[in-house]
Design a protein around this nucleic acid. Sequence first.
DNA 1: TAACACTAATCC
DNA 2: GGATTAGTGTTA
Length: 213
Amino acid sequence: MTGNKVDDQMELISHFYPQIYSQLAQQQEETVKPRRRRKKNKVEGRNNTSEGVMRKRKLLSEEQVNLLERSFGDQHKLETERKAKLASELGLDPHQVAVWFQNRRARWKNKKLEEEYSKLKTQHADTIIEKYRLEAEVLKMKDQLCEAKKKIERLLLERKIDISSNNSPTSSIFSMELSHFSLGEFGMEGQLMDDSMLFVADYQSNYVTLWDN
DNA sequence: TAACACTAATCC
DNA sequence: GGATTAGTGTTA
């Protein structure tokens, strides 16, 4: 029952977190050894229960469980002294108290494991969402870059046309002004160094070569 | 020998 | 069928 759940969790971890999975798998390999199965309907040992006789499971009272829970809340480990004290307080066999603590620790561990797993699952989902958001942002920025390039090309074309058609002294001043241009809508400013090289400053004033023919 | 993992048996 | 109690084998 519990084993299958853990197997499912391991499968998911192996899918989403291969690195973590390999670590866990290694830990499991180191700790889990093959065990022999217990035969069915053979209750023996303590209380002189005879072979083949069905075991009667005695449910603990609410009061007993409450005290055990409080004690477990204080400390998960059960020392011999505390076990004897609890057993006498509850009117139980010290072995029963030990078994109860053993089972309680197992439940606590399972719960912790499930919590850890669901935390990992949430983190994974958040990471996927962030990945998609960043991918969309990259696409948007690529579009912006493409538009900026088009605009710059138009400006360069206009400049060339101006230079060739207007050879007056003012044309050089005009071209100087044109060599520095603004692409405010793209959050950029550009500086044309010559006909083939262009530098663009972004918001942080980091100059990058936009293209270099 | 206690703690643990696994399992069966039982209860609800 | 899930939760609980308890038996069994292994390990440190």
